[in-house]
Design a protein around this nucleic acid. Structure first.
Lengths: 205, 205
DNA sequence: CAATTTGTTTACTAACTAGTCAACTTGCAA
DNA sequence: TTGCAAGTTGACTAGTTAGTAAACAAATTG
């Protein structure tokens, strides 16, 4: 089997955190190697380029974090509106925690990178689109279920999920730009308002 | 008075278009000079750095484009809901036109740059925040007027403007990421839905 | 026209950056 | 224990990048 190593994982972690904290374009391969404590020769042993690493890091983010967490938040056992509220409340907690630790609200790494590189890095952009559309399905299902149960006003779940995703993305982006987690703290109430929830759920807001 | 020149303007235009097409981080001073047809020595005659130029370019964008256009779209003579619909319809037309010309939906230069550099370039970030909050006031006034006239359901105009701004920003960002102007084409209907407009306006959608 | 201000140009440096390579090390397995 | 596969290292190149400086050119004003 030969020599073993977690350098590949360290590189993906370092790349994601640096790009999240700064931006895709401002992070160099040397920066990533330094944070990962990996020499550049090893970088090129595992990856062809920064975009190749970014692609792997985003894939890892989806598989290791996003998908399991979405499966938890959007479990069918949870009432559909509650799924959505729990999810955005979690986003707020996470961003507040990041601000406590780093002094900055960092927003969403997927959307930020996606917007930044969409005209430049075709493969990274395609991965971002894939992750966004996979997450979208969780929203669509929750909204569809909520309509079916009469918990929210009738609507086209596809359209409503699109506008809800935009609302969430916009608020998280505002949180980063303003460096203010409180903006994101209003998201649960905004989501309930946007969905026109009929009666308050058990633990609304 | 000495020698005259429009090199300063050419640099601001070149910087804005390049950063819009690509990203803040991927554009170099050499790139900007090449597009502006200005030698680097002249660049440093007018500006101290890329961020200094970006700051001036954003300021110019607000003064020359955004403020006059917002004053037009949000003229008090226009019914308040119509102001908002006109504005987002204009955004769609603009993005569709950009896609026709460049092959890409480029989204909003202010928000894209703001999200990209917020943790890096304090002055640019501050200018972005200033522009966003100035634009926000137009939304707040329109919503406040709409509530006063009974055109939309009662709400807190500040909160509603915040969520509306997020919805718009999120959709425009999605348009860039997906490179699809049709996403933005659904924005007028989404805005009406989000505002819970009571009766269809003269030329709704 | 002379003097001054304003803007332009070219050539330059120093630092950074992506990417390469051959020698080296470690772990596993026959 | 030997041999191979997997991973590491440091030194290297070539190209890019931000930023500088000094000589030059044009417009304005007295």
């Amino acid at each position: 089997m030969g020599r073993t190593s977690d350098a590949r994982e360290r590189l993906m972690k370092a790349a994601l955190s640096l790009i999240w904290e700064e931006s895709y374009g401002s992070v160099t391969i040397d920066d990533i190697c330094e944070r990962a404590e990996v020499k550049k020769g090893s970088f090129y042993y595992f990856f062809d380029s920064k975009s190749d690493l970014a692609l792997a890091a985003l894939d890892r983010l989806w598989n290791e974090s996003w998908e399991p967490r979405l499966n938890e938040h959007f479990a069918p056992t949870v009432p559909p509106v509650q799924r959505l509220v729990n999810h955005v409340a979690w986003i707020h907690e996470k961003q507040a925690e990041i601000k406590r630790k780093t002094g900055r609200v960092l927003g969403c790494p997927v959307c930020s990178v996606g917007s930044e590189v969409s005209t430049q890095e075709a493969k990274v952009s395609a991965k971002v689109r894939e992750i966004c559309s996979r997450k979208r399905r969780y929203l669509e299902t929750a909204i569809s279920d909520a309509v079916a149960q009469g918990a929210i006003a009738p609507c086209d779940p596809i359209e409503k999920a699109a506008s809800l995703a935009a609302l969430i993305e916009g608020i998280v982006s505002q949180g980063r730009i303003m460096n203010d987690p409180d903006i994101i703290g209003r998201l649960p109430a905004m989501v309930l308002d946007h969905l026109r929830v009929k009666e308050p759920t058990a633990s609304s807001i």
